[in-house]
Amino acid sequence: MNIFKRIPIPIRYKHPLSITMILVILSFILILFLFSTYLISPGYALIAANTTPNSSHNNQIISSLKEQILQLRESYKSFLPRKPYLIVNTSDNQFALMEKTKILQEGKCSTGSYILLKATEEREWLFKTPRGMFQVNVKLRNPVWYKPDWAYIEEGVPIPSPYSPKRYQEGVLGDYALGFGKGYLVHGTVYKRLLGYPVTHGCVRLDDEDMREVFVQLNHGSKIFIY
């Protein structure tokens, strides 16, 4: 009983529930404060951003990009020639007859020698095969070669008149030839041992067997890619 008497402030306990309530409220405020730091911390923000709306947004972006890439790949495929085409590699003197991405025939060829022939100060010729994309503009069976001036100069023989019948030579271009502009031809050859070497005056020489297949597959407008 004395214990109670020793308590000097009974008046403070007039409203004990209020004090309890204050303490509880204070504790909730403290808890809220502590949790608020948790809720607004950067890590939580990132998690929140990626778990709910942004993750699905990211997935949409990824799907959309994949879809776009697929469409672009398909569009790119449309650039492939629909008809068979020829690729000539002047660096290694190789050719490939192609249909879409499939190789129909491949082998050795001869391309421009890069010889600069100097006859006089004014007259010179560079024997190179042009690079780039070309189209077949003429198909010839049993082609006849019109022998140009440089051929006579190379041989060291007098140059005949431009209309001389001596200029026309049969057989030296093989059985077939395809013209692709500016007098350049893809043709057969009698100089088989020179296939694989850069020895021509600008034309592309193929082995006769290969040339036959190329002649059959390529038509007017067929593409020839030379690099």
Binding site: Y114, I115, L116, K118, A119, L126, E154, G156, P198
Partner: peptide, 11 residues
């Protein structure tokens, strides 16, 4: 770039 070989025509 281009492996040019110059060839002069002589007799």
């Amino acid at each position: 770039k281009e492996p040019i070989k110059i060839r002069y025509i002589t007799s």
